[in-house]
Design a protein around this nucleic acid. Structure first.
Lengths: 341, 341
DNA sequence: ACCGTTCCCGGGAACGGTCCCGTGAAAATA
DNA sequence: TATTTTCACGGGACCGTTCCCGGGAACGGT
């Protein structure tokens, strides 16, 4: 019934010894008589002693904790990336603090300050869709705090980056649609200040060019990653004079919802129109028809980011590393060959 | 290029004043000359001073942070619950540290100690599927640290609880199937040491009894929440001499995968067999046919848990509160009326 | 008997803040 | 002018640890 939390000093007092000795016993250092250690350990566990991490971290000048800032925890891609981060961190015995920016620049900045204030040993960041500058990261990197960006990276900054071969895979996906016989391929793009989105769009454009297909502005939809706009731009695409016969969407959610709307309007998939998504969410397998998608290695990216960060924390002054994780095109029925009329 | 992090003492030295004064300026207290304050603030922002949260929290004996332990961040239910927690916490200006137990008792215990060591002001917990005892929570509650359990709650402990009306909604769901004409209703149950799972199963059983239907053990599958067993028990149910004509599954993932397997085997849904899930995941709308489900108010539960916890932190010694959040049956085509032969 | 080691342990500064208390000067009041 | 009040700031203990340093006891070797 003692509301007071027990400290090392309490244990010392109760045992009539100094706090130095207690500290030695609890932190498993040498220079301690086995019997004394035994007594200390026994009392500590009896009193449910919990070391004060704040005091330890303050004294040690490190927290054994890494900070993670992602746009959204509810987004499956980031949830899986966090899974990868956690897995690697757990094995290395480091703690993880997760913050979400809710796709807001202000929140991202607040999270950043909060984590730095908590003296995390390093940071893993995937920037928000609003973030179009990097001045908030600069002073932190200058301070020597290791930092790794992943997926939504920041090119113009001197830090490690983990990302996928967006250009190549977008090219490959588009080419797949072309080879299946589709010619009027629409593209649902992400925010163009993001490195990823730009690269994906470029991959799409270049694949069209390679096959001498026209690049029509009207076929490129700017979704800004907003799920509440899907219906709007789906209707837009459907009522174009030359309706697209394929859609390459920035993520599976958009693709699935578009597919659903078009199906209800009587279009046959993949005969009338094909769909290709991004992320390879588990539900791709279960929708009708199963959705082809780009397998975006979220878990591996998170794991890679954590690996790089932890080695950078352990070995000072390593130079930034860029690591590219390969994506994979997963073909299902939604991009089955176009019906030849 | 100064690797050293700047402290309050550095600022004091550079300005030729005492650290007390600097502290007063930065923490926005009174008793400070405006001009002095101005100078301090200017230098602080120039040097990118970041207060050391460890030192502050150590001195203040509180961290303004709550700890959250959930089984899995990748699980959409918990991801949404965390969303609710974050929302309420953000508005109240408190930080959130999230840990996942990976459905393991050991990890849960480690997370708990880690958070208590970090001196969180309170805890929100949803226990792992392995956790069948509560002795690790007791000493923490005795210490006076506020704690709120949600969804996967711990009945035999003197702490606040937030959960849904599992019994009632399972009853209602089962009754819905019966009223639609289904008679041989299988149930995919969760681990029976969990309060929720027991209540849901009981609701199912009582609904059958109310309508004078037999409760057959062979129709009750124990999934232990393991997604890798779905195919196995689906096959089991399909080859029963009296194949079920409806399945009430513990979650949507299981329901959707079962539906997929049965469809491939040529069964018609909902004519041959109906499906009812749990959680109302977004993909329920997009599968074929759309899956009826129980809308489990994840976000609201998280928000409620955070609300209760924060008021308990702010006002000492409140008595534990139990809050029940209502679930809702969402009817779609997968439980359309049974074909009358 | 003396000295060097080894083994345990205690004292106390330090980590970076907060906050109580004290104090000198200026301002207000008598 | 003398006294009180206000204002602005400094000194220093404290939060709970770690860790360096120093020292006494026991012990072995000469």
């Amino acid at each position: 019934m003692d509301k007071k939390t027990v400290t090392i000093k309490d244990i010392a007092r109760m045992l009539g010894i100094s706090k130095s000795t207690v500290s030695r016993a609890l932190s498993g250092r040498s220079d301690i008589h086995p019997e004394t250690k035994q007594k200390i350990m026994a009392l500590a566990s009896e009193l449910h002693y919990e070391p004060n991490a704040l005091a330890i971290n303050l004294k040690q000048q490190k927290t054994n904790t890494i900070g993670v800032i992602i746009p959204e925890t509810m987004n499956r891609f980031f949830a899986h990336a966090v899974g990868g981060i956690q897995k690697v961190s757990d094995m290395a015995g480091v703690n993880v603090m997760i913050c979400q920016s809710n796709e807001s620049y202000i929140s991202e900045k607040n999270n950043l300050h909060s984590l730095v204030s908590s003296r995390v040993d390093g940071l893993i960041v995937s920037i928000s869709r609003e973030t179009d500058r990097t001045d908030h990261f600069k002073p932190i990197i200058d301070r020597g705090i290791p930092m790794v960006f992943f997926d939504r990276i920041c090119q113009d900054i001197d830090a490690s980056q983990v990302y996928t071969d967006n250009y190549e895979i977008a090219f490959e996906g588009t080419e797949h649609l072309i080879l299946q016989g589709y010619r009027r391929i629409a593209f649902v793009a992400g925010p163009q200040h993001l490195f990823n989105s730009r690269n994906r769009l470029q991959g799409y454009v270049d694949a069209l060019k390679k096959h001498n297909l026209p690049v029509r502005e009207s076929y490129i939809v700017h979704s800004h990653y907003r799920s509440d706009k899907v219906e709007e731009y789906t209707r837009y695409l459907m009522q174009l004079p030359q309706r697209p016969d394929a859609v390459f969407a920035i993520n599976d959610y958009a693709a699935i919802e578009m597919m659903h709307i078009m199906k209800k309007s009587g279009l046959k998939i993949p005969d009338d129109i094909a769909f290709l998504g991004f992320n390879n969410e588990s539900m791709c397998r279960f929708v009708e028809p199963p959705l082809s998608s780009i397998d975006h290695p979220a878990h591996d990216m998170g794991a890679a980011a954590a690996e790089i960060l932890i080695t950078q924390i352990r070995h000072q002054n390593l130079k930034p590393e860029n690591r590219i994780i390969k994506s994979k095109l997963v073909i299902r029925e939604s991009t089955g060959a176009k019906q030849v009329l």
